[in-house]
Amino acid sequence: MGTGPLLLLASLEGLVMAAVLALAAVGLSLTFGVMRVVNVAHGEFYMLGAVLAWAVAQFVPSAPMGFVAALIFAPLAVGALAWLTDTALLKRLNYNPESTIVATIGLSYLLQQGALSFFGPDARAVQAPFELRLQFPWFGYSGYKLFVIAAALAVLAAVWWILSRSRAGLVMRATQVDRNTARAFGINVDRVYAGTFALGAGLAALAAVLIVPISQAHYLMGHDPLLLSFIVVIIGGLGSLRGTLIAALIIGLSDGILSMLYPPTLAKILATLVVALVLVFRPQGLFGAKA
């Protein structure tokens, strides 16, 4: 394959990876930014979304209908679970950072076991809502992957709109800046936190429903998205949506290019170290405000 087509494929793949990263990370960015808590169970919420998408598809006859049903049902179910988690657990811990980490580690064990017990250990394939294979002269490409890029942009735009243009977003931002002052102004901080946590988890589930047709639902799948989301969120800067998007692009594209220059495993090692060093030398992230 010539250099041109190779570059085309690499950039397509890089963009898809960036979309996947951005989708997985946006929910975490939100909870992290507003609540300042590390939700270790974020990856498991994502996994739950994927597994539910598979489960829903079993009850719905056609692939497009199953996809739409999952798109509605999975985020709502996961969001409700997260709301419950927040009120029954995190609130009682007073969002203490260390306690929250332990509690969400415990929660992720529970969710993994739940998925294993109810859905089994197999990797489950979910059909894409439409089958479209783009045939370039040199290689074929999945049309659905391009759709994922578009969907990621749409989701990010929607979250941006909620945060910056809606009343809910205003309340969330106010709570983020100073929760005591927010409370003094009559904002129900408890509800904001529960809502933010539910929204973050729902976004993780939404991301999973979108992504699962190009990967699979599996009860151990939550680990990688968790890690990648943290990286994207921190490199992008806490709570910065623009940062999240740009960090996802940088990581997605550079991962693709590195893996062509070096043996793939070595490329992974290098990419991991590069991310670590970015954090070391710019701990506030690329777009976060200086502390």
């Binding site: 793949e13 990797a123 190009i214 990967s215 699979q216 693709g256 893996s259 793939p264």
Partner: peptide, 30 residues
């Protein structure tokens, strides 16, 4: 740790007669 594979396929030489694959783990279907 890989979960996505398309980017490795251009490394398959065009004069290949047989592509031999063996993968394990939950990502094999992908």
């Amino acid at each position: 740790t890989e979960t996505s594979f398309t980017r490795y396929f251009p490394q398959i030489p065009t004069d290949t007669d047989v592509l031999y694959h063996v993968m394990v783990g939950p990502s094999v279907l992908t």
